[in-house]
Design a protein around this nucleic acid. Structure first.
Lengths: 149, 149
DNA sequence: ATTGAAATAATCTACGT
DNA sequence: ACGTAGATTATTTCAAT
């Protein structure tokens, strides 16, 4: 179903490095004409291998400078779709994962400041099926690597 | 030094949604000409508010389908630059944060499979100043939100 | 599945307001 | 700081291999 040949991989790699690179530029790097690159990119978008193109924004500049990771422990067994439905409405939830181990999920929160983070945590704890949360506040971002350069 | 007016915010928002949108398209959305949009984008890149443009790739397709979060506990006090120097050489480290609480850092690992994850963990534990690690393997990705849509 | 060429569209570099 | 105009470059479509 989804397979990338080496050329696709190099195209994807270029786009990860600079999503606004022209098809001609990419083509020059990988040894293809611009239309050939576009067709491959279109197909990669079609198959879902490429999910889209986005700008990388300094969270500080957006006024979302405070982050935390929260272990979520639920009452009994909660199916993932209910988990998702419970977390989705909270705008401070950047990412969420179901995990092995004691916790049921890990939630990545992003807020404007500590106070905002606190209210976000309160709302998170207010989600009906959530029993207990364990928060870890981020002090600094050490590393933030592009998916594949 | 870094401030965004409402027009900048709308431009950034457009670019987060689609980093390959043309300046003319963005301009139409926000009520500016294409050159005006480009000038603002250039300035946003210059000030570091916009850090770049990247493609969003399905990690499965890259053969990096297994993820884990690892609490890192160090021997005594390790300065952040030494932490960074220790983690940076490991390609499986996608992101790393220094954090409040018991752990010294949280490391986000991405590997091809469980076996690869295991070897990555072993190498992580091999970093000299690392005392103990607590791993949590990701079972599924519930939510992965764009920074600001 | 690729190239090459022609039509269309986007970008860049003025310059003027 | 924005817009318009003109030159340049990129993208797209299509024909052909």
């Amino acid at each position: 179903m989804l397979h990338m040949d080496p050329l696709d991989q190099r195209i994807v790699s270029q786009l990860v490095t600079d999503a606004r690179a022209s098809y001609a530029e990419i083509g020059q790097e990988v040894g293809l004409s611009a239309p050939a690159v576009k067709r491959r990119v279109d197909k990669l978008l079609d198959t879902g291998i490429l999910q889209g193109f986005t700008a990388v924004v300094d969270p500080e500049a957006l006024g979302w400078g405070t982050e935390a990771f929260v272990e979520v422990h639920c009452h009994g067994n909660v199916p993932t779709d209910r988990l998702l439905a419970g977390l989705e409405p909270l705008p401070e939830v950047v990412r969420a994962y179901t995990v092995s181990g004691e916790a049921d999920a890990i939630v990545h929160l992003r807020a404007a400041d500590i106070h905002h983070l606190e209210t976000a945590l309160e709302r998170l704890r207010g989600v009906e099926f959530i029993n207990r949360t364990v928060s870890t506040v981020v002090l600094s971002r050490l590393l933030d690597r592009p998916p594949q350069a």
